[in-house]
Every structure is written in structure tokens, then in C-alpha cells.
């Protein structure tokens, strides 16, 4: 059973993603900010991290990705979720942020809104690659 850690402060979205993963036989843990997710990563083992990048008033996705970066090879794949269009010129900050995220180890990124099943397909592609290796 694959273990998935979701870091998302919007509980409605978090539950939707959780349900999608659970439907595919995964065990899901939800955390609401970067600090909590990082502590989870330090204490428990996961096969995938799905992290929102921006959490108001709290440390968010970058903190999670940094924790994963520190874990080195032991780190599970991560999917960074952003609420804004990556290609928009107006969002240079966002692009910079995501580039940073990729440098830190985000295996992929996905932009809201998206159907939860898409998240599972993406996750499965990582796991399939891992299995092949």
C-alpha cells in the first residue's frame, strides 16, 4: 500500500485528493502547513508527497521540498501544486519559485484546478518508473 503525504491548507481540496488516492488503495496523511508536513517526513515514511506551494501566514511547499532535499536519495517523489499559471509573464515570481522547487527536488508540478484523478495518474507514473528501475 503506497503512503501519500498531502500538504494542503484548503481542507476541501485535501479531502478530494485524499479520496482519489484512497480509491486507488493508498494510505493518506493530511497536513496543513509546511512545518507539520516536514515533521511527518522526519518521523514517518512516505512513497509520495503532494504539496501546495503557498500557505498563507505559514511555511508552505518550499519548506517541505527543502526537507525532502535534505533527505537526499531517501526522499520520495514530490508533486508541487500551484494555484497560478506558470507561463504567465506577470507571475515571474511564481516561475522563479517553481524553478526553485524543481531544484529542490519536486518531481513534477501541477496547476489548480485539476481533477484529483490526474494527481493519481501522475503519482502512478512515478511509481511505475521506480518499479522499472
Amino acid at each position: 500500500m503506497k503512503r501519500v503525504l498531502i500538504m494542503e491548507d484548503n481542507i476541501d481540496l485535501a479531502i478530494n485528493w485524499k479520496n482519489a488516492f484512497e480509491l486507488n488503495g493508498c494510505k493518506v496523511t493530511i497536513s496543513h502547513d509546511g512545518d507539520e508536513a516536514s515533521t511527518f517526513l522526519e518521523k514517518e515514511e512516505f512513497d509520495l508527497v503532494v504539496t501546495d506551494m503557498f500557505v498563507p501566514h505559514k511555511r508552505g511547499g518550499l519548506h517541505v521540498l527543502f526537507t525532502l532535499f535534505k533527505m537526499g536519495k531517501k526522499a520520495p517523489p514530490a508533486i508541487a501544486v500551484t494555484g497560478e499559471r506558470i507561463s504567465s509573464r506577470k507571475n515571474e515570481d511564481v516561475n522563479m519559485f517553481l524553478r526553485q522547487a524543481e531544484r529542490l527536488g519536486a518531481s513534477s508540478h501541477i496547476q489548480k484546478p485539476f481533477p484529483p484523478a490526474e494527481l493519481v495518474v501522475l503519482a502512478q507514473s512515478f511509481w511505475d518508473k521506480e518499479d522499472q528501475q
Binding site: D9, I11, A14, I15, K18, N19, I30, H32
Partner: peptide, 16 residues
């Protein structure tokens, strides 16, 4: 069961 699971997740998000 689904309602119970969602409720505890929501209340944790609410209460911290």
C-alpha cells in the same frame, strides 16, 4: 464512515 473521516479532518484544520 466517510462522513466521520471528513469531519475529523475538517475539525483539525479548523482547530489546529
Amino acid at each position: 464512515q466517510e462522513a466521520l473521516s471528513d469531519a475529523v479532518l475538517g475539525l483539525r484544520a479548523l482547530s489546529g
